[in-house]
Design a protein around this nucleic acid. Structure first.
Lengths: 196, 196
DNA sequence: GTCTATAGGGGGATAGAC
DNA sequence: GTCTATCCCCCTATAGAC
């Protein structure tokens, strides 16, 4: 879920997505413009349009890249050998990482919040993005409970919704309050999965 | 936390806040404009500026009204006589009510998401708004645990953050997915407070 | 309290030169 | 691939008539 530290010689295109993603997280879809991006890259507005003719295409590209990164992450062998609890903690890291930058929420929160104003293509991608996360989490929780590592009642899907909701909500609350709130939520998620 | 069903003869001003609040929830702070409001009320743009000279003042008015409604709600005698579990459930209703309209998130989510782009006055009000909710919830959880009605580990504040995060996150997830997700989260919150 | 009219800025997007 | 120039729309906000 992390980029390689060295940006290859490559692309304005990648730089644009990087910046646009950061802006989307920090300001929402309706809170950033091509001018924000072009100014930061020291190019003109039209240059951005060359790479992404419409803002919709840029938005879709952001979501799709994040989905691909998550897919890669789930297929990572580093994860495979972990206990279910460790896997869950690695999942939490995705959200912790968002806080390393100044005050962005996670992508899911940002997209869900602006959902009603998003172009249709982005709405579809958003739904798929959430489904990716929930599907992975549900499987983890189910298997973890089967092996006795987790304890919770009700369907795994319900528990997955609960956990993801708490993570998203806390990531979001953080920006208006205190960075420690995410850790608080994570501690309680773990607690609630531990007891029997 | 509910308005009286009959809107008294009164005010364009109240109608403006009603509409603006709905728009803020549905579209975010940067996703609605004075034109949305004036069109819906069949007046001109300038008429809105007469009541709220700046969008900032309108935004602040929305948050302050909600804070006042919440304060009234907490002082309601109907609530006072309830068990702690019933009180908590009444609190959940605040979030359930948001779903009665088509797809809005709760006010906290909307404000936290747009936080970085909000004018300073609105940021301050947002912080106070969240503090209101957390303070009330923390007290409820603490007293409920003292009487043995709730069970959880760690400081009540941490649990309050956890519960509010889950509620906000679920309210938000709902719009891009399924309305039942909020109920799922609420069931699991209750479960996690029940076990020992 | 609401209107018309307008200022002044920013938005997304395109055409055509280089 | 990036530039200049420009189009057209929407935004917040104000001035002054009614």
């Amino acid at each position: 879920m992390e980029e390689p530290p060295t940006t290859p010689l490559n692309g304005t295109k990648k730089q644009i997505i990087d910046l646009a993603e950061s802006l989307l997280l920090q300001r929402g879809y309706n809170g950033f413009s091509y001018s924000h991006i072009s100014a930061a890259l020291n190019v003109k507005n039209a240059a951005i349009h060359y790479h992404f003719p419409t803002k919709t295409e840029l938005g879709v590209a952001i979501i799709q890249r994040t989905r691909q990164q998550f897919e890669k992450w789930t297929n990572n062998s580093r994860i495979d050998n972990m206990s279910y609890l460790k896997k869950l903690d690695a999942f939490f890291d995705i959200f912790r990482n968002f806080l390393k930058f100044e005050g962005p929420v996670c992508l899911g929160s940002a997209l869900e919040n602006d959902f009603n104003t998003l172009p249709g293509e982005m709405q579809q991608e958003t739904r798929a993005f959430i489904a990716d996360f929930l599907t992975w989490l549900e499987k983890l929780l189910k298997e973890g409970r089967d092996t006795g590592e987790f304890s919770f009642s009700g369907p795994p899907k319900e528990q997955a919704v609960f956990v993801l909701a708490a993570l998203q909500g806390a990531s979001q609350m953080v920006r208006a309050t205190d960075k420690t709130y995410l850790d608080m939520a994570i501690r309680q998620i773990k607690q609630s999965l531990k007891r029997e």
